[in-house]
Nucleic acid binder design. Structure first.
Lengths: 340, 340
DNA sequence: CTGAAAGCGCTTACAG
DNA sequence: CTGAAAGCGCTTACAG
C-alpha cells in the first residue's frame, strides 16, 4: 500500500501551490471558486485525507476532547458519556474516553496520557480521592477542565463544576411521598460524607424539618445489594417507615426486588422513589418513580459549554445546576388511584 | 501561561543535545545511566510533557485506537467497550470512542473523523447496513480493522471477525431447558434475517431437529417491549409452550415482568433463559438464567488481538469464536429443586 | 555514547 | 488571489 497522499500531491495534480490547497482545506474565502473546484477534484482523485495531526502541530486545535469517567459500566454515566460524545461528533470534535473505575491512580494515568495525546479540553466525572496533582497537571498544560456530577476539587473558579439540581430533586420527591400519605419516610443509600450524598439528602432533610418529622437515614453503598440490606434493617429497626427516597435507582430496585420476593405490594403498603430515572425504571414491575435528571440533556449541555469555552473563550460559571423533575410511576402511587 | 516546554528546553537545562533527550524519552539503551538521570531531572524541573502528536508526525505510532460502537447505551456493548478501553490503557494506548446509534451514515462520519485524527487501528461493532465504502476508506488509509460481534462485511480476510460462540450457547441453553422437563420451547426475539439472530437461533433449531420437536419462533425487536408482546402472542397462539430461549436478556426481562404482573410463577409453570448474562440477571426477581458470553474477557482479548496485529504484524484469523457458558438461575429452575 | 541536519504534513505570515 | 519560506516538536540516520 502506497504512502498516504499529502497536500503536495494534491497541489501537483491541481497545478497550484500547496498553500492554495491548504487554504481550500480551511475553506478560506480568498480562493477563487474555480480554483477550489479544481483542488477539490484533485483531492478526491488522489484519495486525499486531511491529516489533523500535522495541522495540530502548527497550532490548530486538535478537535479532541478528553472524557474521563469514574464508572462507565453504570448506565447513568454511560448515558452522560454517550450524549456528550454524540454532541461533540455533531460539532466535528472527537472524544477520547476512559473509564477510571473509581480509581484515582488510574485517573491520573489516563489524564496524563490524554495530555500527551494533545486533547484540547477535559470533562471529568472524577473518582473520589485527591485529584489536586491530576488537576494541576491539566492546568499547567493550559487545558480547560470541567468537573461534572461530583465536585471533588473545591477550586471551582479554576475548574468549573456542573451537576443536576439534586437538592431540589430530593425536595420534590419527599413532598410527593408526603402528599401520597406517607407517615414516616426513610432516606436509603449513598456513602456518608460524600458531596452527592449530602446533596441528594438535603432536600429530604429540609422538608422533614419543616414539618417536624423525624428523619430515618440509612447510608451505605449505592447498589442493589444495599437495597436488600436496607429492607431488612427497616423491618427490624424502623417498622413504622412506610416510604423511602433512595439515593439512586439501583438501591430502589434492590428494595423492590426484596419486596417482590416477600410478596409485599409496593405502591400501596410501601412507597418508593428512586433517583436518576435510568431507562429501566419504566420497564420493571412495579415501575419505579424516580427523580429525572435528564442526563442526556445534561451531557449535551456540558458539550456545548466546554466548546464555547474552547472556541470563544467564555469560561463557564463556577457552579452550574441543571433542572430536575419527578416522574411518578407505580412504586409510589396507590394502584386504585393509578387505575382510574 | 507560558508555552509548553519542549525537548530543546530540557536539552538546554540538562546540557545535552536534543537528540539525547529524545533517546532518553524512548528508553534507548545507548544513553549512559548518568546522562539519563540528568535528563530526567531536567524534565521534571521544566515540567516537560511528551508531545505524542509531534512524535507521530515522524512516523511513530499514534497509540490511539478507534472504537466504534453501534449502541453504547446497551450495557452489553458498554461492558465490551469499557473492558477493551481499560486493556488498551494498561498497554499505554488510548481509545477514541464513538456511538453510532445504529446509524450507518453517522458511522461513516465518525470513522472518517477518526482517520483524520490518525488512529492506528479500528475495532468496530458495526451498525447494520452497507459498510463497504466505510470499510474501504479504512483499508485505503492502511489501518487494521476488526469487526466484532456482528459480521456485516463478508470480507473477513481483510477485516477479521470475532464474536462469542452464539451457536453453542443456543445449543446448551436449549438442552438445559429440555433436561428441566420443557415440552415445547419457543425462541423469542431477534430481527429476522440478521446474522446474529440466525446464529443465536441455530443451536436451538439443531437440538429441536435432533429430538423432532417443532420449533416456535417469534422474531422481533430485541427489547423489553417485545418480551411483553411475545407473552401475549404465546398465550393466544401457542398455549402449549412452557419454556423460552430469548434472543437477549432484555427480551427475557420483558417476559418476566409480564409474568410477574399476571402472577405466574416463572421457573415452575414456565422456564426462561436469556442471552448475554448482563449484570442485572442475578439481581432481579426471579433471577434470570442466561447464556454467559464473558464479554469482559472478550473485550480484553480483542484489545490484545488488535495490538498484536499492530505491533507484531500478526493478522488475526479470519473468524474467531470465544467460549460461552450457561448460568442457571431461578427463571429456569424449579423452586423446590433450587431450595434443596 | 552525543551532535548537527533533515524531514514528517501541515499552517502562517510575507511577498508578489 | 497565489507562491516560496519558515516553523510546529519530535525522530531518524549519519557523522564524530
Amino acid at each position: 500500500m502506497a504512502r498516504r497522499p499529502t497536500i503536495i500531491d494534491v497541489a501537483r495534480r491541481a497545478g497550484v501551490s500547496k498553500s492554495t490547497v491548504s487554504l481550500v482545506l480551511r475553506n478560506s474565502p480568498i480562493v477563487r471558486e474555480a480554483t477550489r473546484a479544481i483542488v477539490r477534484t484533485a483531492m478526491t482523485e488522489e484519495g486525499y485525507v486531511y491529516n489533523r495531526t500535522a495541522a495540530n502541530m502548527r497550532g490548530a486545535d486538535a478537535g479532541l476532547i478528553g472524557l474521563v469517567i469514574n464508572d462507565l459500566r453504570n448506565p447513568f454515566f454511560t448515558q452522560f458519556a454517550t450524549s456528550l460524545q454524540m454532541t461533540l461528533s455533531a460539532r466535528n470534535y472527537s472524544a477520547v474516553i476512559a473509564n477510571t473505575d473509581e480509581d484515582p491512580m488510574l485517573q491520573d494515568q489516563v489524564v496524563r496520557a490524554m495530555i500527551e495525546h494533545g486533547v484540547s479540553a477535559f470533562v471529568i466525572s472524577p473518582a473520589y480521592g485527591d485529584v489536586t496533582a491530576t488537576f494541576n497537571a491539566i492546568a499547567r498544560a493550559g487545558k480547560p477542565l470541567m468537573q461534572v456530577l461530583r465536585k471533588v476539587d473545591p477550586r471551582v473558579d479554576l475548574f468549573p463544576f456542573a451537576a443536576p439540581d439534586y437538592r431540589r430533586g430530593s425536595r420534590i420527591a419527599t413532598e410527593h411521598l408526603l402528599k401520597g400519605g406517607a407517615e414516616r419516610i426513610a432516606f436509603v443509600g449513598g456513602l456518608q460524607g460524600r458531596n452527592v450524598t449530602s446533596e441528594r439528602m438535603s432536600g429530604y432533610l429540609a422538608v422533614l424539618e419543616e414539618i417536624q418529622m423525624d428523619p430515618v437515614v440509612l447510608t451505605g453503598r449505592s447498589n442493589r445489594a444495599f437495597g436488600h440490606e436496607a429492607v431488612r434493617r427497616l423491618e427490624m429497626e424502623f417498622d413504622d417507615v412506610d416510604a423511602a427516597l433512595c439515593f439512586n435507582d439501583f438501591v430502589a430496585m434492590g428494595m423492590l426486588t426484596d419486596f417482590a420476593r416477600s410478596g409485599k405490594v409496593v405502591g400501596t403498603n410501601f412507597r418508593i422513589v428512586g433517583f436518576d430515572d435510568i431507562e429501566d425504571c419504566s420497564q420493571i414491575y412495579p415501575s419505579l418513580s424516580s427523580v429525572h435528571c435528564d442526563i442526556s440533556a445534561f451531557g449535551k449541555r456540558i458539550a456545548e459549554t466546554v466548546l464555547a469555552w474552547l472556541e470563544e473563550g467564555s469560561k463557564p460559571q463556577a457552579e452550574m445546576r441543571t433542572p430536575v423533575s419527578l416522574v411518578v410511576r407505580e412504586s409510589s402511587q396507590d394502584e386504585t388511584l393509578s387505575n382510574l
